[in-house]
Amino acid sequence: MKNTAQTFLTQEEQDALVQCVKDVEKRTSGEIVPVIASSSYEYPRAELIGGLTFGIITAVCTALIFNQTDMWAFLAQLLAFFFIFTRLLRAFPALKMPFISKDEMREEINEAAFTAFYANGLHRTRDLTGIIIYVSVFEHGVQILADKGINDIVDSHVWEDVVAEITTGIKAGRPGEALCQGVIRCGELVSTHFPIKPDDTDELPNLIIEGNARKA
């Protein structure tokens, strides 16, 4: 299952995406870096709410089935079930989904993308032309951020269309192809203003998968 950063793309898709980035960067001084993360956040609040919800339901059902009336026994069972279900939610993060709002996920994806942008040095390119295509597998979310050199010229809202195209492709089961098309589209948007320079160098990795960076 493609539920982690490491399994999101096959090796062939990774190789194709790296080559796609290299080909696009032959036409622009922009530095485009796809970053794949398993999750943007651990969502501990959802874990607690989910554990409590499942714990209460299970404890009530148990009390009804066995006709229990002892309040202390009920509380003991509730605590035990709460402990069990919080551990299950931690082990199987997909169970947290009903307890996480879309707004919360979007906020966490945005924050994680900003963190990845700076942590991976996209703000340190020579001409301030770094672009991150951040994919968070757990949330099925995509975010694109560009550095100041690009944002001063290119309307930041144009990235929303690219995000929508990538997201659609991922949902259709074509993550590698979708990301490659996103890279190509980013290159088209910036190549006019930031063409390749004679002394241009590949300053950043061409693909980052949770700390594993690749240039070639």
Rank of each mutant, 00 (worst) to 15 (best):
A5Q: 00
V18F: 05
I84Y: 12
L64F: 15
F74M: 08
V21N: 05
V135A: 03
L89M: 15
V163L: 04
D161M: 09
S101R: 06
T62C: 13
P205E: 10
A59S: 15
V158A: 04
N206S: 15
R185I: 00
K171Y: 09
V21S: 05
A172M: 12
Q68V: 11
I153L: 11
L204A: 07
W159N: 01
K197T: 13
A146T: 14
K171E: 11
A80F: 15
T167K: 10
G55K: 02
E13K: 03
E210P: 07
V135P: 02
K148M: 10
V158I: 13
I65Y: 15
I208K: 01
E47S: 09
V33R: 07
Y41G: 01
S29C: 12
E210Y: 05
D200Y: 11
P195H: 06
P205S: 12
G187H: 07
E177T: 08
S39K: 03
G187Y: 00
T115P: 00
E104A: 11
P44E: 15
T192G: 14
T28E: 04
L207P: 07
T7Q: 02
S38R: 07
L189N: 03
R126E: 12
I209E: 07
M71W: 15
I209L: 13
I132L: 14
M97R: 14
K96R: 14
T86I: 15
Q77I: 08
M1N: 11
E42K: 08
N3S: 07
D23A: 13
S29R: 07
I36W: 01
E12P: 00
E210R: 10
L52C: 13
T53I: 08
E177Q: 09
E42D: 14
D15H: 11
V137S: 02
T86H: 06
S29H: 11
T192V: 10
L79R: 06
S38E: 05
L9H: 01
T10W: 02
L78V: 13
E107P: 03
P34K: 01
L52H: 06
I132N: 00
W72M: 14
D147P: 04
F8Y: 03
M1F: 02
F114H: 14
T7L: 04
H140Q: 15
V183P: 00
I100S: 03
R126I: 12
A46H: 01
E31I: 08
H123Q: 14
K215Y: 07
V158S: 03
E13R: 04
W72T: 09
D200Q: 06
L95P: 02
L9K: 02
T168K: 04
C186S: 10
H193P: 02
V33H: 02
A37M: 14
V137I: 10
I56K: 02
F114W: 09
M105V: 06
Y41P: 01
V35M: 05
F8V: 06
Q68G: 09
M97V: 15
K171S: 10
Q181A: 09
A37F: 12
A59I: 06
S39T: 07
D147K: 08
T53W: 13
A91Q: 13
I100T: 04
A5L: 00
V142Q: 03
A116F: 03
L89E: 05
A16L: 09
N212G: 04
A119Y: 10
A5N: 00
T192S: 12
T7H: 04
I144A: 01
T7F: 07
V135R: 01
N151V: 08
V183I: 03
M97K: 12
T53V: 13
D161Q: 09
T53C: 10
S39R: 11
D127W: 06
